[in-house]
Design a protein around this nucleic acid. Structure first.
Length: 104
DNA sequence: CCGATGACCAAAC
DNA sequence: TGTTTGGCCATCG
């Protein structure tokens, strides 16, 4: 799509169901590149495709401290909460309850 | 056209 | 057991 590997990340992120979230490392792992968690973050930062729910991708701590949230503080959290994603008092996503669990 | 950077994670010492 | 460096690719100026 947009390139070679970034496109693969977008395809995976696109498979994340509403109400669930995933982490950069998890997406990278599913893409077959467990060492390329950074690339996932870069891909999301450069994500220009509105069909890619890049807001469902957070860091391993569940933090939404992303360029997405920097440009519009609170937007990412609002979108996730609108999908039914539980948040902690700390302001981070409760990965223990809604982290995406790829079955097949 | 070329150099540096950028939403990170996990192994290694 | 805690802290540090390494790894990977596309986009901007």
């Amino acid at each position: 799509m947009s390139g070679t590997v970034f496109g693969a990340f977008y395809e995976i992120v696109r498979r994340i169901p509403a109400g669930s979230v995933s982490t950069y490392g998890q997406v990278a792992r599913l893409a077959g590149m467990p060492r390329c968690a950074r690339l996932v973050g870069y891909a999301m930062a450069a994500c220009q495709d509105p069909s890619v729910p890049c807001h469902r991708v957070v860091d391993r701590f569940g933090g939404t401290k992303t360029a997405f949230d920097i440009f519009a503080p609170g937007t990412q959290r609002a979108l996730l909460e609108a999908e039914g994603v539980p948040f902690r008092p700390d302001g981070t996503v409760d990965l223990a309850r809604c982290q995406w669990q790829p079955e097949g």
